[in-house]
Amino acid sequence: MTRNPQLTAEGELKHLLTIEGLPCEMILRILDTAAPFASVAEREVKKVPLLRGKSVFNLFFENSTRTRTTFEIAAKRLSADVINLNINTSSANKGERLLDTVDNLAAMQADMFVIRHASSGAPHLIAQHLAATGCDHIHVVNAGDGRHAHPTQGLLDMYTIRHYKRDFSQLTVAIVGDVLHSRVARSQIHALTTLGVPEVRVIAPKTLLPSGIERLGVRVFHAIDDGLRGVDVVMTLRLQNERMQGALLPSTEEYFKAYGLTQERLALAKPDAIVMHPGPMNRGVEIDSAVADGRQAVILPQVTFGIAVRMAVMAMLGGT
């Protein structure tokens, strides 16, 4: 097997493809770098010149207004030029090969690709292809690939937890919902276990858990009440409507009944537990409005921190 493709021989970050395999110090360095960026937004001029003259291409092969927007804001606050390409509505429909698209954009003197793709591993493929074609100077940031990884989401979640809980080494964290299809959950699990969280729980029906998930270092719960007992952090996952097809779940109503995060259930967690959600939320499906809008929810701060974390990642990759 080849060396971790996202690190240079010196162990520096070259791409951000997944949290798996990132050393703990690297994750902490990203979080530390993000901290001062959080205050950039509070200035009158919300910009720093770290990426001035650099071109960041947002390559979204799968729709996502929210993630694309936060990456765009982050890049612009670093003074980069941002080009947004929604490729599922352009060349992919004309049958252009993924790597041909990449070659074309590389030829436009890109400095960074922010990639969202429906296939797990697509950013790895692109990073390998750039190396093979002598375009090694282009950095790849994975903005979500299939079910595999969403590393900036995982990092911003860690930033949020650290902001509210300070120390990872005493925490119990529960991830609730559709782990099977969730790239967010996988990135969260790798980040939490790497940062030394002693107990990471996943709570879901058996149809929404991949086999072998416990090998990732998590404790599996099928009953939400048991899983939430005594936790410091509750991370809810989005449940997509298409899960009602394919015999995974009978209905959103039954899902809410069995796994929806309500105030009563949240009361089983520690009194100061925080509630997180990667967005966009389905109120009344995975989370009750009373919880989403309640005092323990930190869902909007997550969004704010997300910009700082993405600035940190881009600055570390492409900053001069």
Binding site: G121, H148, R186, G212, L216
Partner: peptide
């Protein structure tokens, strides 16, 4: 369908 597929997010 096993640990590797779970890790890589591949359908098993």
């Amino acid at each position: 369908d096993g640990e590797i597929a779970a890790r890589l997010g591949l359908a098993g």
